[in-house]
Design a binder for these strands. Structure first.
Lengths: 241, 241
DNA sequence: CACGCAAAGTTGGAGTTCCAAATCTCCACC
DNA sequence: GGTGGAGATTTGGAACTCCAACTTTGCGTG
């Protein structure tokens, strides 16, 4: 920590150290702006900026009228991605095993392929699709947003009366799913997602791009958006030599 | 966008919209602070704050003396997590297929188990371990940090003269690896990681916690840290009915 | 003793100003 | 035509200030 770099970084580094090494456990109050200016001999701007940076990093939260506090880090609940793959809502078993009530709703509607989705499903642009948007909830609060796309020719989307899994629905068309591929990356939430998932500042999402394949033909693809501060994805892979 | 919410958010929302809808393609200049104050009729603080927020979101970058520009979003290179599992450096094949030169170095040393690692390897606290730190580079620049832990009893760590894969090394001890489990989450980089990986502001890392199992015994566990803005993890899973 | 209210403290939005360091532009000079 | 330098811009750090909205605390009154 060179003494040459910005003073606000000195404050940030000092508080961050205390948080990560445990001397400031979750819930502890952070000195107020006024106290920081005195304690570190810096101006309001630097104190304020330091608090903002720590907030953006997700280490602390501010409560208007009260103060800043070390953020309670929620436990990272495991989502076992393959274990329940032939389940209508693979996530439900995991969520419920955590003692949380899992619910979800969805809406299917016709849509035209965007360039991205057309590429993922190897279709022509603007090909007719069925788009289904799911909101998965734990104890009523949204915790996963999924948008699923499949070629319109598979007709009958998921309905209240026909809540069968994808594998079951497609087998009615003689299509046998042979492989699932998931691509995971992380990104900043879009405002709508931030809103829907009630994400605190500075929390990224995990974005899973899942594609079901029947042989070498992609038959369904989804975008799955998950709060990055509350879940971890679990993939297991047996080795047979 | 209610007209009641902070003015700086009006600026943020307007610029963000132009970036995501493509009217401001990567590389385009963003109006300067002075121009923003005029254009939106706000004060310096609001203009400055808006630029800071967009920077933290990773949408723009500032260059001192020049201006702010829409950030070039690097392509998300795929890392196929299982395909090369019995490879000394599974990532090398993927990196090289991208036309990038892959290199790596490492240092093995004895260490005592931390509570976390002890739990993951089902050992007693402070049990003796071999800790190996890898730095993987693409064209010389660090792109992946890995720390691997295995019980000290497996002796002989990876050396220059003995660069065999984990599977091969352990089979010499009669230990046959049967399963690999990877747990993926995302988090803010630690300062050291941010430094080593040269991460731009606002970029999270993907953290993969990988454990190799021999039956129901964990025999190796690693923490793998990857820049979240440049890679996506690819997991594929065959379905056999 | 209990209750309510006022005062004090705190966050977050917003404005203004000053400055160092880097960059860019353009013109004058060779 | 090329080169160098001066001046204008721009970012990023920092200071100070004002204010609305909210929370906490503690005191005084019934």
């Amino acid at each position: 920590m060179a003494s040459s770099d910005p003073v606000y970084l000195r404050v940030v580094a000092d508080i961050r150290r205390q948080i990560v090494d445990g001397s400031l456990p979750p819930g502890s109050p952070i000195p107020s702006r006024a106290q920081l200016t005195r304690k570190y001999g810096v101006g309001e701007t630097a104190a304020r900026h330091a608090l903002r940076v720590l907030t953006a990093e997700g280490l602390i939260v501010g409560r208007v009228g009260s103060g800043h506090y070390v953020r309670e880090q929620p436990a990272l609940l495991p989502l076992h991605r393959w274990r329940f793959h032939d389940h209508h809502a693979p996530f439900a078993a995991d969520i419920q095993s955590q003692g949380t009530r899992a619910t979800w709703d969805w809406r299917a509607e016709p849509a035209d392929a965007t360039p991205d989705i057309a590429h993922r499903l190897r279709l022509d642009e603007s090909a007719p699709l069925t788009r289904t948007r799911y909101v998965f909830r734990g104890d009523g609060k949204p915790i996963q947003l999924t948008t699923s796309y499949e070629p319109a020719e598979f007709g009958e989307p998921v309905t209240e009366e026909n809540p069968r899994s994808l594998v079951a629905r497609l087998s009615a068309f003689g299509v046998k799913i042979t492989e699932v591929v998931e691509q995971v990356h992380t990104r900043v939430p879009q405002p709508a997602e931030s809103d829907a998932l009630a994400l605190p500042a500075g929390v990224n999402v995990l974005h899973v791009e899942r594609t079901h394949w029947a042989g070498d033909r992609p038959v369904e693809t989804s975008d799955i958006v998950i709060p990055g501060d509350r879940f971890r994805l679990v993939y297991s892979h047996p080795l047979h030599p």
